[in-house]
């Protein structure tokens, strides 16, 4: 089912991770992604795993939900791993058949890439799971603010993201409705080759597209009725303040980074 996609979904739960300042959380996630790419040994992967699992536990998000976030990425992960296994040259050959060679470096690289992608997806999904879209876009807006001096429309970017995130579930629901309606009239989305299936989707995409324009028009009017006039002079329900939880998470993040970097430098 389309609506199973948890992309960009937010789970309103009361947890410490939810309470971290969104700006800090976005920066931490970026840091985490860099650190994940530093990992290349049992110890460092162990550390990343320990860190990630602790964050999931603290966030009170169910593990099944987190695993589900990997599902749409599974294909990419497998392809990357396969490419790495078969197309990495190395000296230590584990197995060969005619021109196909599997080297030790290849296998190591494949495992490395797969693990990194998994942690990457888990980390970034956790960001959206634990941060409400408004907080997320608020955080992005404020982080981008310094760049608005050089002409970056930080408020507009944030507003577009807010609306996109708000409408993802609505549009998925609508797609499913249209597909069901077409199926009940005998449309077939599952059989045939790729071109045939893509063609079958046209009668779904056209009404979806047209409806989206109507929605956009109505939404724009509704926003005007609610006195929307751009980012200038706008205030916020939530004031972002650097609190005790942020300090605590910063310390933990620093410790994690220092450990990762030292292990990396020492080659442990």
């Amino acid at each position: 089912m389309l609506t199973d996609i948890t992309l960009g979904q937010y789970f309103p739960i009361d947890s410490v991770i939810h309470k971290i300042d969104p700006r800090a959380k976005i920066l931490f996630t970026l840091f985490y992604i860099i650190l994940v790419f530093l990992a290349d040994s049992y110890v460092t992967y162990g550390l990343v795993a320990l860190f990630s699992i602790s964050v999931v536990v603290l966030s009170k998000i169910k593990f099944t939900v987190v695993l589900k976030s990997l599902k749409p990425m599974l294909f990419v992960i497998i392809i990357t791993a396969v490419i790495n296994v078969f197309f990495t040259s190395g000296t230590e050959i584990l197995w060969s058949y005619k021109f196909i060679k599997i080297t030790k470096t290849g296998v190591v690289n494949a495992v490395n890439m797969a693990l990194r992608l998994i942690f990457l997806v888990v980390g970034s999904s956790l960001l959206t799971y634990t941060t409400s879209p408004i907080m997320l876009t608020d955080g992005i807006e404020r982080l981008l603010k310094p760049f608005s001096k050089i002409g970056l429309p930080s408020h507009e970017i944030a507003m577009m993201m807010t609306i996109a995130l708000r409408f993802i579930p609505t549009l998925l629901e609508e797609t499913e409705k249209i597909m069901t309606a077409q199926k009940s009239r005998g449309a077939d989305f599952e059989s045939g080759n790729i071109i045939k299936r893509a063609k079958a989707l046209i009668p779904v995409l056209i009404p979806l597209f047209i409806n989206s324009f109507k929605r956009a028009d109505e939404l724009a009017t509704a926003m005007e009725c609610r006195c929307y006039r751009g980012g200038e002079g706008r205030t916020r329900l939530r004031v972002l303040k650097f609190g005790i939880i942020d300090l605590f998470s910063l310390i933990i993040m620093l410790v994690f980074s220092i450990l990762m970097i030292t292990f990396g430098v020492l080659n442990i």
Binding site: I134, T162, T221, M223, T235, R238
Partner: peptide, 28 residues
Amino acid sequence: FQNPDNQIVASVVEEDVAFAPENLGVKP
């Protein structure tokens, strides 16, 4: 308006309700 889906701007209820006063520059 008629269609509630096309009037709600934010994904969480209270954040949506806050949209108009935020636009008006009301204090937090």
